[in-house]
Design a protein around this nucleic acid. Structure first.
Length: 286
DNA sequence: ATTGCTTCCTGAGCGC
DNA sequence: TGCGCTCAGGAAGCAA
């Protein structure tokens, strides 16, 4: 399930492959995979200028091709280029094919470049999506996202007032994209274990030290996961279909016992599996 | 306003 | 072998 490190891995690898290429067309193979609002259709979307990430969103930005501006083929309002906002949800994959490719039964969309290479959007559970907006428009989905974990703005100081106001558990807080953008179930579990904080602890009960630890462990664990190209626990694959390796470094998610040898407790919260060690992660301060 | 439950989807894994 | 059941989970939408 792609979270921030997995999307970052894809962005980095994709950058090497598609920057400078022109998007000839986007084919939607399954209904409701691609939403283009009511823009001109899915052809000639310009040249890829950048591939970036915000939270768990992958952002492919294009600029109009110079030749088309000179000829003035399109109205002036299309001169800004486009943003492809891609969310992989649980099982989405972007697979770059440098040769002729038709995909398989899980291929939901195909982005074709003018040099005949393709980016296949495969998604078994079909929750992923690609939305196409004009660069000049405000991307609604991105506006709702909270702190980017690697930003200096994400600090103990900045989240303390948010934590104080909430009436929810720290696990739910970490998963809420409106506060911190990019964490999913696996990393939320790992961060709490590293901080020795119970996932069930209320946000308003966190100590100053715990908040400091939450911020630093979030940055540290995400950074380390990116270094290992993400976690391939089930479906995550890199652009070249290879796996990440951070699953080999997980300390609590999916584990039977923690590194101290204590047995790990597994509960369901908000429909998600929460793994924690009741001995290492106490709700009350020692 | 805030919180938390339900829903969407398909394939893997399990018991019988 | 095959059937039916459960599970995996991000986030929109909804209800309390």
């Amino acid at each position: 399930m792609p979270e921030l490190p997995e999307v970052e891995t894809i962005a980095r690898e994709l950058r090497e492959k598609i920057i400078g290429k022109s998007i000839e067309r986007i084919e939607e193979l399954r209904l409701n995979t691609v939403s283009d609002k009511d823009y001109s259709g899915l052809v000639n979307l310009g040249t890829v200028e950048s591939v970036s990430r915000r939270g768990k969103y992958l952002i492919i930005s294009t600029a109009p091709e110079k030749a088309r501006i000179v000829r003035g083929k399109n109205g002036s309002d299309s001169d800004s280029g486009y943003c492809l906002l891609i969310h992989l949800r649980m099982t989405g994959k972007l697979i770059y094919q440098s040769h002729e490719a038709v995909g398989d039964k899980h291929t939901r969309a195909i982005i074709s470049f003018t040099d005949r290479t393709k980016l296949l959007f495969n998604d078994v559970r079909t929750f992923g999506s690609i939305s196409i907006i004009k660069s000049s428009d405000r991307p609604g989905a991105l506006c709702k996202l909270g702190y980017e974990p690697f930003s200096p703005d994400f600090s103990a100081k900045s989240i303390t007032p948010l934590l104080a106001k909430r009436k929810t558990t720290v696990k739910n807080f970490l998963l809420d994209q409106r506060f911190i953008a990019g964490l999913g179930n696996i990393y939320a579990n790992e961060i709490l274990y590293a901080c020795k904080i119970s996932p069930l602890k209320m946000t308003s009960e966190l100590t100053k030290e715990e908040i400091t630890s939450l911020v630093s462990q979030t940055k540290k664990i995400l950074k380390n996961a990116i270094k290992h190209n993400g976690t391939s626990i089930s479906d995550f694959r890199r652009v070249d279909d290879k796996s990440g390796s951070f699953q080999n470094f997980l300390k609590i998610y999916g584990k039977k016992s923690c590194k101290e040898g204590h047995s790990v407790t597994r509960i369901k919260t908000q429909g998600r599996s929460t793994f924690y060690c009741p001995q290492c992660q106490k709700e009350e301060e020692k």
